[in-house]
Design a protein around this nucleic acid. Structure first.
Lengths: 138, 138
DNA sequence: TCGCTATTGTTATAGAATAACATTTATTGT
DNA sequence: ACAATAAATGTTATTCTATAACAATAGCGA
């Protein structure tokens, strides 16, 4: 299996590419240690190798961090513009995550914060619930 | 110093009271281990004692968890009603956290999620920025 | 090529959270 | 009051998450 990155992505280094591919091909979010385990056959041996690649990918906006899960997902938007405010819907049954977009939301949160004199730079929004597929199964 | 809980709170056990008081009197969010260190003189010796108390306090809605900081804060609202959707504004300079309220927000997020067939149960919203005080200082 | 910067590799350690088990304290029903 | 049950506690060990510190290497521009 050769590594094939997202066409929209800039050049990634070996480790960055491995980690990005692992996340891209995963069905749901992965923890750093889950990534590590999946890449042991590819020369990745230590947590730091994964965390460093993740740091870079996060910085590039190719990957997002799910705070409430201590996990990571590849960005689902081809060119993720509004990097600072995103909404993740986390299914509590199947663990899948989808990334939602709402233009108004960021402005709204900013204005809500400003009422308190708080100037907002970024927002983490994570929803928990049940996704379409899992709802229809139950 | 005797322990004095929030008047609105139900009866808490010894450890729950200690942890709650620690959070209430703190200036900002505390990690479980910071709480532990602060309570060593009061008989708390192991992480589990703190985590168990926190679990109960979270369940009672007296305490909130800040996912992006792995920390905890005492609820700032006397009787925190909408337990499922709250907004925290985290100052990146002084680390203080304030709890914001917006009635519309929950409904709005629910409807945003529903567009994707996702039925939302709870939401974690954490804003990062600079608070009023810190902005005026700079 | 020299010098700079980013990336890598590795070991050790810090920080956050839970498992498992024994004991003790409260609560409840009769 | 008293047994039965549930909740909370104490303790040790372990797992999971993340970073510190240091040495080596690869890429790139002047």
């Amino acid at each position: 299996m050769t590594t094939q990155h997202n066409p929209a992505s800039p050049e990634l280094t070996k480790n960055q590419g491995l980690v990005y591919d692992a996340l891209s091909s995963a069905k749901g979010p992965l923890s750093a240690y889950a990534i590590l385990d999946g890449l042991r056959d590819h020369g990745i041996r230590a947590p730091l190798q994964v965390y460093r690649a993740l740091d870079k990918l996060l910085e590039l906006g190719l990957v997002h961090r799910l705070e409430s899960l201590n996990s990571f997902v590849a960005c689902q938007h081809p060119e993720c513009e509004s990097r600072d405010t995103m909404v993740f819907a986390i299914c509590m049954k199947c663990e899948k995550v989808s990334e939602l977009a709402d233009d108004r939301l960021e402005a709204q949160l900013k204005s809500l914060a400003l009422k308190d004199g708080f100037s907002m730079n970024a927002a983490t929004i994570e929803l928990r619930g049940v996704c379409k597929e899992c709802a229809s199964v139950s």
